[in-house]
């Protein structure tokens, strides 16, 4: 029964690491709860949950700072924290934009960046932005800390590179340099509280008529949030224009693997991903 699942609430990383070190079977980490509580209520995978580690009150993980061109977002920073943060608006305004598009106010108040990352849904709203932005995830546990590039973090459908005794601590994102932009679009059918059907984020700058530093990531078009390296390569060093965009679109088409599900057909996702790519590129 749900009531029988043990819950350990901790207030510091040290306490959290002590729990992780015991490697309880079926341990699940609870942050804002906006995914986990829904899964529990719907009894999805309930039998696999053996123990809940509640880290919501670990305040050292709830921070957003901009320091020397690096934006650091603690795993427990909520969407509300992100959309209100001067640092986010200065360094990566798209992250504030996406936070505003997630769920309702209640979800924005409870949902965390770390939760979105660790839930690892291909539809996770922040994930294409984090990958396109070039985020590095800092993870830690009783055995120490390590750094994982965002695009390496999502290893398979809803599977992350975290070991059983590790927590996500923060994301580190390089702030936009002068001339650089990060543009993003989520297509979600209705105008609020919508789960993404396709999303795309593009980070780049145009220097002397050529795309430089292109990073592109897409959501809902593969089992994982996908860094689109072939699309980036098709654009890098070339100039904006219809021919370049068509080539980029063809490259994107070759590297995404959308499926039919309740929210959209694969054909729709494929077409819309291409359309949105062209639309976003036209903004440069």
């Amino acid at each position: 029964m749900i009531a029988d699942i043990p819950v350990t609430s901790v207030r510091s990383l040290d306490e959290a690491y002590a729990v992780l070190a015991r490697r309880a079977a079926g341990l699940r980490v609870l942050a804002g709860g906006t995914d986990l509580m829904v899964q529990i209520q719907a009894r999805v995978g309930l039998e696999r949950i053996g123990h809940i580690l509640d880290i919501w009150k670990v305040s050292e993980l709830r921070h957003v700072t901009l320091d020397g061109g690096t934006l650091r977002v603690g795993a427990l920073a909520t969407y509300t924290d992100l959309l209100r943060s001067e640092a986010v608006r200065a360094a990566l305004p798209a992250l504030a934009q996406v936070a505003r598009e997630v769920g309702a106010w209640a979800i924005q108040n409870r949902g965390t960046l770390g939760g979105n990352v660790c839930n690892a849904s291909p539809a996770g709203d922040t994930l294409p932005i984090l990958i396109a932005a070039g985020a590095t995830f800092v993870v830690g546990g009783p055995r120490g800390e390590r750094r994982i590039a965002a695009e390496e973090f999502f290893v398979a459908y809803r599977k992350t590179a975290l070991a059983a005794d590790e927590l996500l601590l923060r994301a580190e994102l390089p702030a936009l340099a002068p001339g650089e932009r990060l543009v993003y679009r989520k297509v979600g059918t209705r105008r609020a509280q919508s789960i993404s059907r396709a999303s795309l984020a593009v980070r780049a700058r145009v220097e002397a008529g050529a795309f430089r530093g292109v990073r592109i990531a897409a959501g809902c078009v593969a089992p994982v949030p996908l860094r689109c390296r072939a699309t980036e390569a098709a654009l890098e060093g070339g100039g904006p224009g219809a021919a370049a965009f068509a080539a980029a679109r063809a490259a994107l088409d070759g590297e995404i693997r959308p499926i039919d599900d309740l929210r959209a057909t694969a054909a729709y996702r494929r077409r819309v991903a291409g359309n949105v790519l062209e639309q976003l590129l036209a903004a440069f």
Binding site: T189, R191, A192, L262
Partner: peptide
């Protein structure tokens, strides 16, 4: 525009407000 009940083999697939979408105030 939005509301579509989906079945597979007669079983209702989208029995949640997350998957059966109705208009919000913004819509």
């Amino acid at each position: 525009l939005l509301e579509e009940l989906r079945h597979r083999d007669g079983r209702v697939l989208n029995d949640r407000l997350q998957t059966y979408l109705i208009p919000t105030a913004l819509d």
